[in-house]
């Protein structure tokens, strides 16, 4: 499989990622039937990804204009949304007094990784002019977004299984 095929596949899957996050969120509301760390995490993930997806065409248009500020806007807005998403994860868990699950931790790490990649790419492209992180940026960002879907599904299944086991093993 060549790079072109991988790139086309990543691009196509990337567009579906928001739909997958949203479906996972709706499913979590029906399965959990109460406010939980999973519901909070998936809601923040869907909202943050939705905002990024909605802003991408506008930012792309702006970034194609001449001037460093417009290029900065492309990276800056994404880093800002990543930062806000982590803050919202913390704030909602704190306000709703929910224990932070492993899925919430994974999603926060993913946002942190995305923000770091955006910052590194900006440095690489406009400060050091080395173009070392081009591939990391090109494939890393969609890869992280896509990988989150199976990771969340696996951890959710494991958590459900261990919760069922605890109910069965509970004394009484």
């Amino acid at each position: 499989m060549g790079w072109d095929t991988i790139e086309a596949l990543l691009f196509d899957l990337g567009k579906l990622v928001f739909v997958a996050y949203f479906l996972l969120f709706v499913l979590s509301v029906f399965v959990e039937r109460k406010v939980s760390s999973l519901v909070i995490s998936l809601m923040v993930l869907a909202v943050a990804n939705g905002a990024m997806t909605a802003l991408t065409p506008l930012l792309y248009e702006l970034a194609s204009m001449p001037g460093l500020f417009y290029k900065f806007l492309w990276y800056g807005v994404f880093v800002f949304i990543d930062c806000i998403a982590i803050f919202l994860l913390y704030k909602f868990h704190n306000l709703l007094r929910q224990s932070v699950s492993s899925i919430a931790s994974i999603i926060a790490v993913a946002f942190l990784a995305l923000a770091s990649i955006q910052t590194l790419r900006f440095f690489d492209r406009f400060v050091s002019n080395t173009e070392v992180f081009q591939l990391v940026y090109q494939y890393g960002v969609p890869m992280i977004n896509i990988m989150l879907v199976p990771l969340i599904a696996i951890f959710w299944a494991v958590n459900l299984k261990s919760a069922n086991k605890n109910v069965q093993a509970a004394p009484g």
Binding site: V79, D82, C83, I86, A104, L112, F122, F126, V127
Partner: peptide, 20 residues
């Protein structure tokens, strides 16, 4: 611009530390 991005990254890391 890079320093602004770095600052936002540090804020994100701070929020992550609180969550952890």
């Amino acid at each position: 611009f890079f320093l602004i991005l770095l600052l936002i990254n540090m804020l994100a890391f701070y929020a992550y530390r609180k969550l952890s």
